[in-house]
Simulated scan of single mutants.
Amino acid sequence: MEMKLQTQLEKTACQIRIHAVEAVHAAKSGHPGGSLSIADILACLYFNKMRLDPKNPKWEDRDRFVLSKGHCAPAVYAALALKGYFPVEELLKLRQPGAMLQGHPDMKGTPGIDMSTGSLGQGFSAACGMAAAGKAAEKDYRVYSILGDGETQEGQIWEAAMFAANYKLDNLCAIVDCNGLQIDGNVAYSNSPASLQEKFTSFGFAVEMIDAHDLDAIMQALDTAEQTKGKPTAIIAKSIKGKGVSFMENNGAWHGAAPNDEQFKQAMEELHAVLNKLEVE
């Protein structure tokens, strides 16, 4: 990847993290851990890969995105605001009564949201339906969906995967955020999905294994998915829950908790230090 583009995407990912933490702190509730682990993937999708038009959110030929793990909406909201779908100031109204941005994505209330999600397992099914519709209508848009590794414990994920492979939905790309932690603790201890690579392969997917925080690897995997024909793609992305904030990293307590004022100050200092360094570079 060109160095200038990589630096810009790194800055954008850092800004997504900053705004996600700001939103959760302002709301005094939310899910920062998983929001931070997908920031690099979102930066690559929204700012380099997906075909979008913030001035026309319902553009028929746009690429679609479904956050199947809907509780990590703060990161997607941050990406949408930075992309220009709505003012960044809206992020500080997260979860407030009557506000545009609620705890889970709402396609009727938020521009740029393609599917309302929250009940784990269901978002990926909707993404499969979108991809099938695109095929039926002979459209060339692509559909991307981020799942949680804990979410793959849901049987509906595998019903959807079977459907996607059966209908050869090569316009579909599932990205599994494997941060190893869920609300009940360690995913492996709760109900281990074991080898996701083997599972998705056996279901008929092309599979890519990557570091979820390596921007070059993310872009290469997304490019490979776009070039793959005859089958859907699953990108298994090994990530760090709470990535970018030292006391949140690999700490399951931050699955669904808001930082207090002191913790928020420390998080902002750490994230802005990274952003300042990138801006100098």
Rank of each mutant, 00 (worst) to 15 (best):
M162N: 12
N171E: 00
M107K: 13
V274R: 10
N260S: 01
M219D: 14
F47A: 00
K199W: 13
I235A: 11
K93G: 00
K229P: 01
Y167N: 04
A27D: 02
G185F: 12
A206Y: 04
L147C: 13
S35G: 12
I18Y: 05
V21H: 08
Y46S: 04
Q220T: 08
H31I: 11
V24D: 15
S145Q: 02
L172N: 03
K231I: 08
K241T: 12
L9H: 01
G256M: 11
I38R: 03
N251G: 08
K108D: 12
G118A: 13
Y77A: 03
V24G: 10
A174Q: 04
N48V: 01
K231S: 10
F203K: 02
A164R: 14
G109W: 04
F65N: 06
L169P: 04
D170Q: 07
P54I: 10
I157T: 13
P105G: 09
P97Q: 06
I38H: 02
Y77L: 01
D140G: 00
P87V: 15
A267K: 07
N179W: 09
I236W: 04
A73W: 00
Q8E: 10
L172D: 00
R142N: 03
A20T: 04
I210P: 05
W254Q: 07
Y46W: 05
L120A: 09
E270V: 15
D149I: 03
K69Y: 02
K238S: 15
V76R: 08
M209A: 10
M115T: 13
A212N: 07
A234N: 11
K49Q: 13
Q15S: 13
I18M: 08
T7K: 15
G33P: 03
S239H: 05
V176Y: 04
H25K: 09
D61E: 03
V76N: 07
C173K: 01
A165T: 03
W59T: 04
K4G: 00
L172A: 06
M209Y: 11
G123V: 01
E208A: 09
K11Y: 09
D149E: 14
G121E: 06
D140C: 00
V176M: 09
L94K: 13
D170I: 04
I16D: 03
L278R: 09
K93F: 14
A99D: 07
I240F: 05
S119N: 05
I183M: 12
N250R: 07
I218S: 00
K49T: 12
G129F: 06
Q8C: 03
V207Y: 02
A127T: 01
N186T: 10
K11R: 13
A39Q: 06
V21C: 06
C72M: 12
E10A: 15
A194H: 14
G180F: 03
L275V: 01
L94V: 10
